[in-house]
Write a protein that binds this DNA or RNA. Structure first.
Lengths: 146, 146
DNA sequence: GATACACGCAACACATAATGTTACGTGATC
DNA sequence: GATCACGTAACATTATGTGTTGCGTGTATC
């Protein structure tokens, strides 16, 4: 029965999966920052795979949000106080770029098209900045019910 | 040569392709709202396929941003003044939901996990609303250089 | 009314990117 | 040294979007 439930939860691809996983995990960790958590535990809670967890959390570690320890009694911990980790930190660590494109697209040959392209990109960049600013207003500690 | 250039431009998958195509097309149309444009013309400018154009613009028509006419001398036109079409209109018409998930994800069994999930979703919904508001501040007429 | 034009839509192939999974190496602790 | 947990590579699987073709429908032109 528990097996069936787990089967129902896994193998489901979600949009914004990385961001969702990162946010849920960090929020959960914020409730007990001292506790060391293994990728297996986290994967169980998130209904996914330990390797996937390590992939995502690895990016957060590169951004300085998490620390990881190998070996016995190893696992993951917050690198700093949960109040000091904002959603923007998480978003930027994952390098998602939800709104603006990555700007490596081909530049149109026509000059008027080129100007329009630059204008659109500029506006979307502005929106992206606005998004990051909004994300920066909330810390992961505020995601807990406490 | 022109053949090669076109070959280089097509078959390139971009992120946010629909939004990008819609924005560029509408901005371009805003420069000359009276002109009727065919999906073939638009596809040429965008370096894509007429069917793809019709797919994307079809959504914009459903949202009341565009009108399409069949038959000879048919094509696409803005349904209203370009000043009255905001980026939020376009974004919502495409139903992208860049930040918040589609909320059809499975609800966790554990109650504390469930509460956290709801909290995270709530915050992301708030961010999404903020994004739409920001997009609503710019009209497609402002994307033109004029 | 026949023809050409343009959208509407379905069906399929193809490409891309993410996740799921397995396996093996490395470091740390007991 | 045995165990545990991360680090990483490699591959399979899945999801999503795009490219493409074909055919139907409606409309203007001749």
């Amino acid at each position: 029965m528990l097996r069936d439930l787990k089967d129902a939860r896994r193998n489901t691809l979600k949009r914004n999966s990385r961001l969702s996983l990162a946010l849920h995990t960090l929020s959960h960790m914020a409730g007990n920052p001292e506790k060391m958590r293994t990728s297996a535990d986290i994967a169980d809670h998130a209904g996914t795979n330990p390797v996937v967890v390590r992939r995502v959390l690895g990016r957060l570690r590169e951004a300085g949000l998490l620390t990881s320890e190998k070996g016995h009694a190893g696992g993951w911990q917050l690198a700093r106080a949960p109040e000091a980790i904002t959603l923007a930190d998480v978003y930027l660590a994952l390098d998602e770029r939800l709104v603006a494109s990555d700007e490596n697209a081909d530049a149109p040959a026509c000059s008027v098209e080129h100007a329009l392209h630059k204008r659109v990109s500029s506006v979307l960049e502005d929106v992206e900045r606005s998004l990051v600013q909004k994300l920066g207003e909330t810390s992961i500690s505020e995601m807990r019910g406490n």
